[in-house]
Amino acid sequence: MTSPATRRHWTALLAWGLLLLVAGAALATWSLAEWRGAAQFLGVAPRPPAFALRQAPPPTVFPTPAATDDATRTRIADLEGRLAAIEDRTRRAAGSAGRADALLIAFAARRAVERGVPLGYLEPLLAQRFGASAQRAVATVITTARDPVTLKELASDYRALEPALRQGPPDESAWRALRRELGALVAIHRADVPSPMAQARYDRALAHLERGEVDLALAETTRLPGAARAAPWIGKARRYVAVQRALDEIEGAALLSSAA
């Protein structure tokens, strides 16, 4: 049986334990409230974020430029004028280069036609360069070059045609032929008018041919008595005149052309 002294001893110990427990709880509560690190350590307070958002610096405000002075405006105007002049010279140089190329093609085509050789690589160049501006002339040159007619050939054939040209047409009667021959013996005409006699016309036509004046030779030939006998030659001469005019048109287009 426990003695009264023992009971008082245990009662005192229990009282001190309760007192210490209450004091410890109060101390812990105060520490958690006042010391944030302890609360975070014990897990009863949220931890701060691992990193903080960095505030963007304020935008840089550039000062408004001062009004441009007269000297600066003058320099700017001078530079703009120089740039415009450079652009103009560049365009002119490009146009001159394009014009030179076009003239080279036109002269080469004329040379080939006059020599009576095929155009070869010049055919697509002519069509590409002048097909839009001188389509008919290009077609005439290409067609004639495939069946060439030269001035030398025309003159040679014309000399061989002299007897036929001085005669009358194939269906001429003997009486008309006699009258024509008698009329050719004497011809009266003005001094400033070319002689209408057949031999004189033929000589003039041949002289025109030798100077390269095929159109004038053709005009004289069509007035000769035997012009009907020279139909093939007349056809060749007309083709020659047509291709020369076509070449003139192409060269004119080349002179007016620019860089393309």
Rank of each mutant, 00 (worst) to 15 (best):
L13K: 13
L255K: 15
K236P: 00
G43F: 02
G43Q: 03
S257I: 05
R36T: 09
S156E: 11
V44L: 08
A102F: 03
L27C: 09
E251Y: 06
R245N: 11
A184V: 04
S257K: 07
A56W: 03
Q244L: 15
L154T: 06
F130S: 04
Q167M: 14
Q199Y: 09
R54N: 05
E210M: 11
L165C: 07
Q128P: 04
T150Q: 09
F62M: 10
A200Q: 13
T144H: 02
A112P: 03
A5C: 03
L104W: 12
V113N: 00
R89V: 07
P46K: 06
A237T: 03
E34Y: 04
G168S: 13
G235I: 15
L53G: 11
E153R: 15
W175K: 07
A25V: 09
A132Q: 13
Q199P: 08
T64Q: 08
I86R: 11
W35V: 02
A231F: 01
H9E: 08
V61P: 00
L151N: 03
P49S: 12
L83K: 13
A217L: 03
V113I: 08
A45Y: 02
A242K: 05
L206G: 03
A137G: 04
P170G: 11
Y121P: 14
R223D: 10
R47H: 14
A23P: 02
A254H: 02
A52F: 05
I76E: 15
W30K: 06
L161C: 05
R245E: 11
T2I: 13
R176G: 09
A230D: 12
R99V: 10
A219T: 15
D101H: 12
L20Q: 05
Q199V: 11
Q128L: 15
H208M: 03
A230V: 12
V243E: 00
A93M: 06
V22L: 07
F41H: 06
D203P: 01
A139V: 05
P194C: 11
R201M: 08
R159K: 14
A191P: 09
S96M: 06
W30Y: 07
Q135M: 07
R204S: 11
R115L: 07
L126E: 07
D215E: 12
A145E: 04
A33Q: 05
L122E: 11
G43C: 05
T74W: 10
T64G: 06
P46T: 07
L83G: 08
A217Y: 00
I142P: 01
R111S: 14
R166C: 09
A230Y: 01
L218E: 01
Q40R: 15
